[in-house]
Simulated assay, not measured.
Amino acid sequence: MGRTDPRGSRPEVGAGWTDAGKSYEVRGLKRRARKTTRPVPIPPVLVQLLRRHLDVYGTAPDGRLFRAVRGGRVRSTEYTEVWQEARREALPAAEVHTPLAEVPYAARHAGISLWIKAGVDPVEVARRAGHSIAVLWKFYAKLLRGQQHRANQLIDDALNL
């Protein structure tokens, strides 16, 4: 299992909303001290993809993994265009015009849902996602409920060791 350690974020908010007049703000991680990192485990298949990307493209001078054609930041409009094209390529034609994976953030939600469905302890899911348990329950309760059969099997397996 690999790991990445995000140190901060650079959300695009629009130049009118920042003190510096830039279209983005450099921020720390949500609900964390300014210089704190958050270790995030990443599966081997993603590690391989990232290494291949780095071998081919390297990083931007400031360390960013992805950059626009001329080396600058990938703006949300450009990212959205690429996302929509990827949806057209990846989804069956009948699902392209549905809300399925409509925005890039849906991939985060899908990943967290996958971890829960795979049986990862909810405390660990919350930690990896950067959520509190309360937030995890609020937004993912429908996935966390209804697992009685699985829970019974886990308990039975533990008792039969």
Rank of each mutant, 00 (worst) to 15 (best):
G2S: 11
G2E: 08
R3K: 13
R3M: 14
T4I: 15
T4N: 01
D5N: 13
P6T: 04
R7S: 03
S9Y: 00
P11K: 03
G16R: 13
G16C: 05
T18E: 01
A20M: 07
A20H: 10
G21Q: 02
Y24H: 14
E25V: 06
V26Y: 01
G28N: 00
R31L: 06
K35P: 00
T36V: 02
T37P: 00
T37V: 13
P39M: 10
V40C: 03
P43C: 07
P43N: 07
P43F: 08
Q48S: 13
L49W: 08
L50M: 15
R51G: 05
R51L: 10
R52W: 07
H53E: 08
L54D: 07
L54S: 07
D55G: 11
D55N: 12
Y57V: 08
G58I: 04
G58S: 07
D62K: 06
R64I: 00
R64E: 03
L65D: 01
F66Y: 07
R67T: 03
A68V: 06
A68S: 15
R70F: 09
R70T: 07
R70D: 15
G71K: 04
G72D: 06
V74P: 03
V74A: 04
T77H: 13
Y79T: 02
T80D: 13
E81K: 15
E81C: 10
E85I: 08
E85A: 15
A86E: 11
R88P: 02
E89T: 14
A90H: 05
A90V: 08
A90M: 13
A93T: 04
E95M: 13
V96S: 10
V96Q: 15
L100A: 13
A101W: 12
A101N: 08
E102L: 09
E102Y: 08
V103W: 06
Y105V: 07
A107N: 09
H109N: 05
L114W: 15
I116R: 03
K117Y: 02
G119S: 06
V120A: 06
V125M: 05
V125D: 01
R127C: 03
R128L: 09
A129D: 00
G130M: 01
G130R: 00
H131P: 01
H131Y: 11
H131F: 06
I133A: 11
A134P: 00
V135G: 00
V135W: 01
L136G: 02
L136M: 09
W137V: 02
K138Q: 14
F139I: 05
F139K: 01
F139H: 15
Y140V: 03
A141Y: 05
L143P: 01
L143E: 09
G146C: 08
H149A: 15
H149L: 09
R150L: 10
R150G: 03
A151Y: 12
N152I: 08
Q153I: 09
I155T: 10
I155S: 09
